Amino acid sequence: MAANGTANGTGTGYANAHPVFLVFGKSGWIGGLIGDLLRQEGAKFEYANARLEDRAGVLADIERVKPTHVLNAAGLTGRPNVDWCEDHKLEVIRVNVLGMLNLADICFTKNIHLTTYATGCIFHYDKDFPEGSGKGFTEKDTPNFTGSYYSYTKAMVESLLKEYPNVLTLRVRMPIVGDLVYPRNFITKIIKYDKVVNIPNSMTVLPELLPYSIEMAKRGLTGIMNYTNPGAVSHNEILQLYKEYIDPEFTWANFTLEEQAKVIVAPRSNNLLDTKRIESEFPQILPIKESIIKYVFEPAAKNREEVKKAVREMRGR
């Protein structure tokens, strides 16, 4: 391990009480939220202009800003969903593989801490990790889900990034925000569907966890972090909360994974991630269902009629 890191992933050599942040992903969802948080806390930061695959441009951004820490929220996830990646494999490789390694390598050569918002959709329930058992995949477990090209490349890159002692890889899953009509919000997605599968999953409540990621960077944490709230919550549980807090007349139906497979291109990941590491750093972290209630449904309930109307218009009902 390099002198500026530690073998257990604490990365104390990268800790900095007065960090300068460079943020990649200025036009993206998470990148925008990160910028808002950094402004609120009066942090010194700038957005990068370069695309990840443009090595000269990335170097120019780093020379311009001279960051102590890079926060990367850039990458391709596909629009309107990850099925897009199945027909755009070269674009996915260029950005999510070559671009990500490009950024990590440059940060390493410049002795800069890099936090990257990755994905935990690289695992799925199996005989060793059965659904409902409470046994979660740890940071040390080898990814076992390659059903989508997006997940396949993400698992590949995660494995390679482990060789860089300056990198913190955050496994985000099914990210959630308070805006119930924001199209990339996981809750918004399932509210819009007529039918959903009903499977418990680990998820990431961004209003609670995004501030933790900035603190992780300041602490110089490295390695892999399961970046989700403790526990799992099912689709039905979330929709039931929407029914209870917002719209008592809301209805939905379930379908099986086999039925879902007929209307999507690539399979989806369903899993439970072990959260012992993030809990050790932030003991105050809320279990997933409690976090959703606090950061999504209790605030939304204060404007119940407006939210209900907006959601019904979104659903065309």
Score class of each variant (00 low, 15 high):
197 V>Y: 01
185 N>P: 12
240 Q>D: 05
76 L>K: 15
75 G>E: 12
278 I>W: 03
42 G>A: 13
51 R>G: 13
211 P>V: 12
167 V>W: 12
265 V>G: 09
107 C>I: 05
80 P>W: 04
248 P>F: 02
146 T>R: 12
88 H>T: 10
77 T>E: 07
245 Y>R: 08
230 P>W: 04
145 F>K: 01
225 M>D: 02
207 P>T: 01
120 G>L: 00
10 T>S: 10
110 K>F: 08
216 M>A: 08
113 H>L: 04
155 A>E: 03
294 K>P: 02
64 R>E: 12
230 P>V: 06
299 P>Q: 09
229 N>I: 00
296 V>H: 03
12 T>E: 10
182 Y>L: 14
257 L>M: 15
39 R>A: 15
227 Y>I: 04
71 L>Q: 02
184 R>I: 02
32 G>E: 07
201 N>R: 14
285 I>C: 00
251 T>H: 10
149 Y>L: 15
179 D>P: 05
129 F>R: 00
282 F>D: 03
113 H>Q: 12
172 V>C: 03
17 A>R: 14
189 K>A: 07
218 K>W: 14
141 D>F: 11
311 V>C: 04
145 F>H: 08
79 R>W: 13
283 P>N: 11
120 G>M: 00
46 E>Q: 10
228 T>S: 11
20 V>K: 12
237 E>L: 04
192 K>R: 15
83 D>F: 10
271 N>H: 07
86 E>R: 08
289 K>Y: 03
121 C>P: 05
235 H>F: 15
3 A>P: 09
226 N>A: 01
45 F>N: 01
247 D>E: 04
56 A>E: 14
255 F>D: 13
84 W>S: 03
284 Q>N: 13
69 H>Y: 01
217 A>N: 04
236 N>S: 15
46 E>S: 15
205 V>I: 12
30 I>S: 09
221 L>I: 10
131 E>I: 00
107 C>W: 09
48 A>F: 12
211 P>N: 12
27 S>R: 10
24 F>K: 09
54 D>L: 08
297 F>M: 00
298 E>P: 03
228 T>D: 05
23 V>P: 10
125 Y>W: 03
136 G>C: 00
50 A>Q: 04
52 L>Y: 08
85 C>G: 03
314 M>N: 13
48 A>T: 05
28 G>A: 06
249 E>L: 09
126 D>V: 00
57 G>W: 11
29 W>G: 02
59 L>Y: 00
198 N>A: 01
258 E>H: 04
31 G>P: 06
116 T>I: 11
10 T>I: 15
251 T>M: 06
14 Y>A: 11
45 F>D: 09
271 N>P: 01
81 N>W: 01
6 T>K: 14
113 H>D: 11
146 T>H: 15
141 D>N: 05
136 G>P: 00
107 C>F: 06
153 T>V: 10
64 R>Y: 07
231 G>F: 05
166 N>R: 07
305 E>D: 06
130 P>H: 07
256 T>A: 11
195 K>S: 13
